[in-house]
Amino acid sequence: MVNIYDNTLDNPNYYRQFSCGESLITLYNCPLKNKYQDVWCQHNYFIYVIEGTKRWHTAQGTFELTENTCVFVRKGAAISEQLSDDKFCLVMFFVPDDFICEVLKSKTSPIYRSDETFHTVMPIINDNYVQAFFKSIMHFFEARYEPEKALLELKFRELILTVAGNLNNREMLAYFGALLHEPQAISLQKVMESNYCYNLKLEAYAKLVNRSLSAFKRDFRKQFDTTPGKWLLEKRLIHARNLLVNTNKTVSEAAFESGFESVSHFSRAFRGRFGLTPISVKNPVFA
């Protein structure tokens, strides 16, 4: 999977970018290379679409991003799909959890924990304030000089306070409340439940929950009473079986959409767990 944050940092000549600490602004002006791409990021990010259409496929469903769409994407994995041969241009703001929390704590009106459900991709109301903000950002990319770091930090703060000030951004505000008030154990569980079906390494899961690898393994065992590897295998196999039984997915599609690196590995693990081959579950006549 492609880490879109690291990939951006590693290619400054390809992606025009400005950074302030771990926070990062970049302009993607993308010709079509691969229609589908598996992506993940250890930071949350905002997307503002300037041109083109893309879909983000997540564990909760599919979200279509079109021109002038603004969304907030919480850290984790997804599959991006470009819908045409035309270029796709967008502005992305990567913002770490701790920076978001620091800014939110400065608000005059506090954000509380909410029972509102939030998904991986959350729509942002594209009101006049949001449009004006992103128009101001485009001047950075048009200028020949690098903006001051202090100004960049102010722009990151402005973005978070602008969207958090609109009470109609209910999903995003629920997520912000979770960042501020949820215990780490609940956060770990939500990250794992949202991302188990992607082929991420354990080091990536550790980054998503803001832990070292050793701390992640220790806390995971304390909470789930098993190792991350065993838990992931079980969740992926059950997910794959549900895809085979309840959808038109092929064995190969079910394997890759459940986080397995290869069909052969998936088939061996599936037979070891259920005593049947994936094809016999998909087509009982072969059982």
Results as ranks from 00 to 15, higher is better:
A143Q: 10
A143W: 00
R144K: 15
R144I: 04
R144F: 06
Y145V: 11
Y145Q: 12
Y145D: 11
E146K: 10
E146T: 13
E146Y: 10
P147F: 04
P147D: 06
E148I: 06
E148Q: 13
E148W: 00
K149D: 13
K149L: 12
K149S: 11
A150D: 13
L152F: 08
L152M: 14
L152Y: 06
E153L: 13
E153Q: 15
E153S: 12
E153C: 12
E153R: 15
L154K: 15
K155I: 05
K155L: 13
K155S: 07
F156D: 02
E158A: 14
E158F: 04
E158K: 13
L159Y: 04
L159K: 07
L159H: 05
I160A: 04
I160N: 02
I160R: 04
L161E: 15
L161N: 14
T162W: 05
T162Y: 06
T162I: 15
V163Y: 04
V163D: 05
A164F: 02
A164K: 05
A164Y: 02
N166C: 11
L167T: 14
L167D: 14
L167K: 13
N168D: 15
N168G: 10
N168H: 13
N169Q: 10
N169I: 07
N169R: 08
R170W: 00
R170F: 06
E171I: 03
E171H: 08
E171L: 05
E171T: 05
M172I: 06
M172G: 03
M172Y: 04
M172Q: 09
L173G: 03
L173M: 08
A174T: 04
Y175R: 02
Y175H: 05
F176H: 02
G177M: 05
G177Y: 03
A178T: 10
A178W: 06
L179K: 10
L179N: 05
L180A: 02
L180G: 03
H181P: 01
H181L: 03
H181V: 02
H181Y: 07
P183F: 02
P183T: 03
P183C: 02
Q184I: 12
Q184M: 12
A185Y: 01
A185M: 05
I186C: 08
I186E: 15
I186T: 14
I186W: 00
S187F: 13
S187L: 11
L188I: 14
Q189M: 10
Q189D: 14
K190I: 01
K190A: 11
K190R: 15
V191T: 15
V191R: 04
M192R: 01
M192W: 01
M192K: 03
M192P: 00
E193I: 05
E193Y: 08
E193D: 15
S194H: 09
N195Q: 11
N195P: 09
Y196P: 08
Y196D: 09
Y196I: 08
C197D: 01
C197V: 02
C197F: 01
